[in-house]
Design a binder for these strands. Structure first.
Lengths: 218, 218
DNA sequence: GTCAAGGTTTTTGTATACAAGAATGATGCG
DNA sequence: CGCATCATTCTTGTATACAAAAACCTTGAC
């Protein structure tokens, strides 16, 4: 399926919003972006529509498109939902996961471990996503898996910041181990609880998240 | 905030997809719809973008926009996710709900009861939505509330069909009572369980849902 | 009669043109 | 000197025009 120009633009704009090129409240100028991308305003506006639906832009009629970065409160809320979605995926996956997927899960986890030892944040980030994505899919509910993956992607830039904090990677690995054990033995509630705790933002992590926000706002 | 033409069109198309005017796989003709709505293709295409993002349309490049009604499997999956979202809302709301909201909840429930007695399906449908929406909001997590409301809306036409079945309204009312009791007494897990059960599709209800799908396909 | 190849016709995707509303700045009045 | 009002300019929203790709139809060969 070949892509439209508008799709590519949407992806690039999304990337810029995620990586902080645009700050919260920035107005995106149609004509300036259009000539920057070398297209007319039409495909650009289509891209705007998309990003607005994903919550990345706010389209105010007759005013323009404004970047909408989640604030502290919304971010906490999103992490809370993510924790619950992961918990549900885990609970279902504990009953439904295949042996093949379990093998892949352990493999992804080992890759994570190697990334931690090599202090390779990018590799950890990548393998961690694989780890979680397997659990989403093994929930046996592809709609759930899709929704979980969507939110995961949106929270990724913030998660990434969190991993910089000392000791977080190691702790995260221990949690992964616990999750794998619960899934291996089919303990649904244990898997749910482990995943919820793994993702949830609380206590010390909350302060880390606040720090993340400050650095992202600069 | 006044609306754009494109917004109104998106709403109307959404309505048509929900109420079954368009069947799964139907291709929406841009020019025909444009003259039908009395607009050009531009706002229509913007509306398409939206509906595609909500999963109601599939936009195949260079081919067109195709209506995408959820099939049996996807529908079951969506109900499963809805049940879990409601459960989470209930669990959080049990701890966070305000007295005012509890009063409103009881009020909505009484209106439901009256609708059942009057055999007024439309009224029941409306008050039931109010009942659930209060719980979403009282989760204290507006992101969660928003997501729950979004999915609720998407599933509404199917839920509506289900209520036609004999005895379902009465059973649903009993479940509402149980939910209210759990929320009143702050029993988080009980509220979660009651709401999950209330929404989940299982056993007999599954067959009803299948019947719904058949009638919707006609 | 069937199938394939090429051309014709639709239909989508993008660019441009135009219209209407919002922002901005200048000017006049208090 | 400050503020309000009006005109100008800019920006968005929509319509139209054009280009490219897909669907189709016809025609010809086997």
């Amino acid at each position: 399926m070949e892509k439209r120009r508008a799709d590519q633009i949407a992806e690039q704009l999304e990337e810029r919003i995620f990586n902080g090129t645009y700050a919260d409240g920035d107005r995106l100028d149609e004509v300036r972006l259009a000539e920057q991308f070398g297209v007319s305003r039409t495909p650009l506006r289509e891209a705007f529509q998309r990003l607005a639906l994903s919550g990345l832009l706010e389209l105010i009629p007759r005013r323009g498109a404004f970047v909408r970065q989640p604030g502290p409160v919304e971010l906490i809320e999103m992490f809370e939902v993510m924790a619950e979605l992961e918990a549900v995926c885990g609970r279902l996956a504990a009953l439904r996961i295949s042996d093949l997927a379990l093998t892949e899960l352990r493999e992804a986890n080992e890759s994570c471990q190697r990334a931690v030892e090599a202090r390779d944040a990018d590799a950890y980030y990548f393998e961690n996503e694989r780890f979680h994505r397997i659990i989403y899919q093994q929930s046996g509910n592809s709609f759930l898996a899709q929704e979980a993956a969507k939110l995961h992607k949106r929270l990724q830039p913030f998660r990434r910041q969190q991993l910089r904090f000392r000791g977080r990677m190691g702790q995260s690995m221990a949690e992964h181990e616990e999750i794998v054990r619960a899934l291996e033995t089919g303990q649904a509630e244990a898997a749910a609880k482990a995943l919820r705790g793994h993702v949830a933002v609380q206590g010390e992590k909350f302060h880390q998240l606040m720090a993340t926000l400050k650095s992202a706002a600069e």
